[in-house]
């Protein structure tokens, strides 16, 4: 029997993170129920490691990351 995760349908939703606005507070990383967001290794102009979207096919477009983002740096498409 395959695991629940592998049976999940591929989703179309995705988010766009405005890298230059991100201050690396990690709220979105902790909030995402499907762990679609990671912290990037590169540094933006403000000097922070911005969050990076790595959940193509996993993201459901629930908007929770965008709701907790203090800098409104996330746009959600579904």
């Amino acid at each position: 029997m395959s695991s629940v995760t592998s049976e999940r349908k591929q989703t179309e939703a995705y988010i766009i993170i405005l890298e230059e606005r991100c201050k690396s507070c990690r709220f979105c990383v902790e909030t995402c129920p499907r762990e679609c967001i990671v912290i990037d290794t590169k540094i933006n102009a403000q000097g922070y490691h911005p969050a990076k979207f790595e959940g193509m096919g996993k993201c459901t477009g629930c908007c929770l990351c965008a709701e907790v983002c203090p800098d409104t740096a996330i746009e959600v498409f579904k």
Partner: peptide, 9 residues
């Protein structure tokens, strides 16, 4: 085609 569901007010 995905539509934008969350944007800056």
């Amino acid at each position: 085609m995905p539509q934008q569901v969350f944007k800056r007010p």
